[in-house]
Simulated assay, not measured.
Amino acid sequence: MTVETQAESTAPGSARDRLLDAAEALIYAGGIHATGVDAIVRQSGTARKSFYAHFESKDALVAAALERRDERWMNWFIAGTQRRGKSARKRLLGMFEVLREWFASADFHGCAFLNAAGEIASPEDPIRIVARQHKARLLDFVRTQCDAFAAESQMPARHAARLSRQWLVLLDGAIAVALVSGNADAALDALTAARALLDTEAKAGADAKSASDSGPSTRGASSRSAVRKSTSASTSSSTNPRPPSRRSAT
């Protein structure tokens, strides 16, 4: 039995799982292009033949590792968000508190999906597709919270889709700034902007409801008043015509 095979037989977990674990850890910390198959195999404690038995290429391994990370990350983020409060407003704002905890951790290296997408040129590459699907899942979850906020604040429901897209920009922006700056408080800066955005949307919703509650009778009265003023002005103009100008008289 070779040393490589012996290590594989004694290490915990299946060879495939260990390859996925190693690939995710190494690529998240150092990037896709900087991480070779040999390094992944070595860290996983598997034989190289196990890699080829489970994956047709390094890109296939990376895509599978990202798919698994997507599931785990979304479960973590959703659970953390749900714990932040019973109202949709509290949950939406709580997302940035969840992110700040992540930013402050020793193994934070930004968004694995944005990082991966930045290394892959083709939008049809399986790695880019996984990254795109992750952002779509995150946007879907944010949208459920924005829909709930719209119902709470009487914001027009049609605004929820726009708000959810803006929210995703704030989330990803905070992640990017925290990665580059090394400052976990980027989440708090995004939180301040997010709170102002919700206040603006809530006020717009309240104003729209107030205008609707005024009813057609008020609008009708205003219209009738405008008609009376217009009629009065017209009558006054016809009984007191302006004298012709000197030019028209000639």
Rank of each mutant, 00 (worst) to 15 (best):
T46Q: 01
T46R: 04
T46N: 03
A47F: 01
A47Q: 09
A47R: 12
A47D: 06
R48K: 14
R48W: 00
K49M: 09
S50P: 00
F51M: 12
F51A: 00
Y52T: 12
A53H: 15
E56H: 08
S57I: 10
S57Q: 07
K58N: 02
D59F: 10
A60L: 06
A60F: 01
L61Q: 07
L61G: 04
V62R: 02
A64S: 14
A64P: 00
A64I: 05
A65H: 03
A65G: 07
L66Q: 07
E67K: 03
D70F: 06
D70I: 01
D70E: 10
E71W: 00
E71M: 05
E71Q: 11
E71P: 00
W73E: 15
M74V: 10
M74F: 11
M74T: 11
M74S: 11
N75G: 13
N75A: 15
W76K: 12
W76L: 14
W76Q: 12
W76A: 15
F77M: 02
A79R: 14
G80H: 08
G80E: 12
T81G: 14
T81E: 06
T81M: 15
R84S: 12
G85H: 10
K86H: 13
K86S: 13
A88S: 08
A88M: 09
R89V: 08
R89P: 00
K90R: 14
R91K: 15
R91L: 10
L92V: 10
